[in-house]
């Protein structure tokens, strides 16, 4: 029997394949591509000039700056926390380990609005620590620290979730080998552990960053929506939209969309460029 006859016996008929592909593409187009195009179309409806004006407007710039500030603090913080958490979950045995793993997942399972509310209840004026913070003159809620805290909380699982399965699969034999060969704990981390997890770590950081910039719910609760001060980009988009300022709303939204696209392209580029190395570090 010729080889291609075997191949056709094992695969679905052509009409079936076409139907499946068409269905998948229709869904993708309808639910992903069309909205994306709509964002840019709406943003540019009054022309490039109006688009540009909406972006360089004072409050919009402040929102973009604030979003970047929050991300610049939240992402590195979660990078460190995520690596530390994965390290201790995968390399050590201790009581309450399962509880820790569950806690790491908590931000995923809790509604972002609740996450925000937790901080209001903790640090708000009538909250648990509110009176003390007020007497010390520290403002957390309706200020940048609250935004950062809420964002860190919501994006905490991304890095750890990416690393834990990877590090579990890799085991700790290489670290043990390094220790026996005379490396210190620090050297072992930098020379053995980190190179083995770097691509997983990068994935986690990219996803974490995307969410940190795009987070709405938790941030909305703690922000107070003070224009030019505590409005991040997603919040600013909402305000503009509610004011029927569609061009400006979509213009800012398009910047967010572009950030997401850049993240995706970066991820794909990394996969394409380092595919072989990625596969090598994932499997023994």
């Amino acid at each position: 029997m010729p080889a291609n006859a075997t191949a056709s016996a094992l695969s679905d008929p052509a009409w079936m394949r076409r139907l499946l592909i068409a269905t998948a593409l229709t869904f993708l187009g309808l639910f992903l591509l069309l909205p994306l195009v709509a964002v840019f179309a709406e943003a540019l409806r009054r022309g490039v000039f109006a688009y540009w004006v909406a972006l360089v407007e004072e409050d919009a710039l402040a929102a973009i700056k604030l979003t970047l500030i929050v991300a610049v603090i939240a992402v590195p913080a979660n990078l460190v926390f995520g690596v530390a958490a994965s390290w201790c979950v995968t390399k050590f045995d201790f009581r309450g380990k399962n509880l820790l793993i569950t806690l790491i997942d908590l931000p995923f399972s809790v509604s972002p609005v609740i996450s925000g509310l937790i901080y209001v209840l903790l640090f708000g004026l009538s909250g648990l620590l509110g009176p003390y913070l007020k007497s010390e003159g520290i403002q957390i809620i309706f200020a940048v620290p609250g935004l950062v805290l809420a964002t860190i909380f919501v994006t905490f699982p991304f890095v750890a979730r990416e690393l834990i399965p990877l590090m579990q699969e890799q085991g700790s034999e290489e670290e043990e080998a390094a220790l026996v060969l005379g490396a210190s704990g620090w050297q072992t981390f930098w020379r053995v552990t980190l190179p083995n997890i770097k691509w997983g770590l990068l994935y986690g950081v990219l996803l974490c960053n995307a969410r940190a910039m795009g987070e709405f719910g938790a941030v909305s609760v703690v922000s107070g929506h003070i224009r030019g001060y505590t409005n991040t980009m997603p919040l600013h988009v909402e305000i503009l939209y509610n004011e029927y300022n569609f061009v400006a709303a979509f213009a800012v939204a398009s910047v967010l969309a572009m950030l997401a696209l850049v993240t995706l392209v970066a991820k794909t580029a990394l996969e394409w460029r380092f595919g072989a190395e990625l596969a090598a570090t994932r499997h023994k």
């Binding site: 034999e173 290489e174 043990e176 080998a177 390094a178 026996v180 190179p195 083995n196 570090t281 023994k284």
Partner: peptide
């Protein structure tokens, strides 16, 4: 000097 069952060579 320790030789591991699955070698534990540094893969990178």
């Amino acid at each position: 000097g320790f030789v591991f069952q699955h070698y534990a060579l540094f893969r990178h």
